[in-house]
Write a protein that binds this DNA or RNA. Structure first.
Lengths: 245, 245
DNA sequence: CGTAAAATTGAGCTGTCTCAATCAATGTGG
DNA sequence: CCACATTGATTGAGACAGCTCAATTTTACG
């Protein structure tokens, strides 16, 4: 719970993320006057909702009215296969859309789960679409978010297709660290790290058991430290070398 | 050469694909009068270019003036890693954009190679961007193409992360068959299949040697037949079952 | 404080890889 | 039109990264 509280305490930060920054689209962020003050801001942000940790936020076949943005907490977009296999496709973080595909689709096609308690708000789809035609800047913003999601999936495919388990783990940690840093959600070289090893495994196409061994190796080599639900990178250089980039 | 000729002979079909159909955006398709006749069609299609088979079309760091569409032939978007490892991220087919990311970026960030001789045309980026703001339908069309690319990458990630070699091969063949059928580039249950086993391997995160064994198994079980550069699905049901969907 | 979930560790196993050799196909120059 | 050269396909044999099964310990939380 301790770490969840930390995440709870930062709902205002969530509104700073790339998905909504600069859009004048962030009316729900009460203390982001700068953004909210723009006269043409569409009044579309719905009430904040909260999904409890480890619970589904949306099912693959749910009908969704709008375009959800994470305010606080970590989500997970996951694909289920026959046989119980799971592949996590992305971890939407505070300030990010769950999926920009929802601009046009009213069904997510994937299960979306809460890693931590997730605070989110949805923008009404019809309104967003309408405003897109009026303000091309908004359209462009959403399009670019879609491209970012696409690029992340490319990186994921490269990881899963051609990189070793160690490289994958190293890269996931670096990626999350950098994304959280971008949203000011890190403290020095430590971040809240709510992921279970099972979830890391499902994100990296590995087994929980093997994931554990890789993490142990990293810990034993003094590369990182995981205490409670907090991760500290002790040797960023070595981690980068392992990540191979 | 024989199969390449087949692909050469179908450049007009290439313009029918989802990337450009219905856009009034297909001026280069001389015999698609229906499309070309629209008064608001932007005059942006450049001269057709041809890249020879097995050669790079673009390098990852090339500066590209526009948004290339495949008219005929198969492309491959590939990521190179240190150590010579390669991951093929997509096979752009006739009628498809090489990457919708190029609407905003002037550099592809990936190597793009020609599987067969590739005929392509580019739309000037500035002009496209300009027309996007005038005609929201064009913007939406491009956005949706981006979403399609994203969804394909999700499927790829699921394949690479959680499916066996047999499942991956089966699914690749089904996917290509369906996409070619959508563009009327199949004859019954047979398609031109210009891929080398090395390329299949690089697309599926496998080794050429193992890919060969899987294909042999499929051949021996009477599921498919590969003659020359042509592939015939003999037992679509069994193939679907192997693909697990 | 008890119970359930997660992490850790061990031991053996297998899908896929590596290395290496051979064979077939395709392209090239004379 | 042939001989050679190059690239791709095929096959075999052994190796290993990462998996499965299973038990134990630690952590989280009501």
């Amino acid at each position: 719970m301790a770490s969840d509280v930390k995440l709870h305490d930062a709902p205002k930060m969530g509104c700073m993320g790339c998905a909504v920054r600069g859009l004048g689209f962030c009316r729900f962020s009460l203390d982001q006057g700068l953004e909210a003050a723009r006269a043409d801001t569409p009044q579309v942000a719905q009430v904040e909702r909260v999904a409890p940790a480890r619970r589904p936020i949306f099912r693959a076949s749910d009908r969704i009215d709008g375009l959800p943005v994470i305010c606080a907490g970590w989500g997970a977009v996951v694909a289920y296969l026959p046989n119980g296999r799971r592949q996590i496709l992305s971890f939407p973080l505070p300030g990010e859309f769950i999926s920009s595909s929802l601009v046009f689709a009213d069904v997510p096609f994937r299960d979306v789960e809460a890693v931590t308690p997730v605070h989110y708000r949805s923008f009404d789809r019809a309104t967003v679409r309408q405003h897109m035609t009026i303000r091309p800047g908004l359209f462009e913003r959403l399009f670019k978010d879609c491209i970012t999601e696409k690029e992340r999936l490319e990186e994921l495919a490269i990881d899963l297709g051609r990189r070793s388990a160690e490289e994958r783990v190293a890269r996931l940690i670096l990626d999350l660290t950098e994304r959280l840093a971008k949203h000011d959600l890190q403290r020095g070289s430590t971040i809240d790290f709510p992921l279970r090893q099972t979830q890391i495994a499902d994100a990296l196409g590995l087994t929980p058991v093997y994931t554990n061994q890789v993490l142990r190796k990293f810990r034993n080599s003094g590369i990182l430290k995981i205490v409670g639900r907090t991760l500290t990178v002790l040797d960023p250089l070595k981690l980068s070398l392992l990540a191979n980039r």
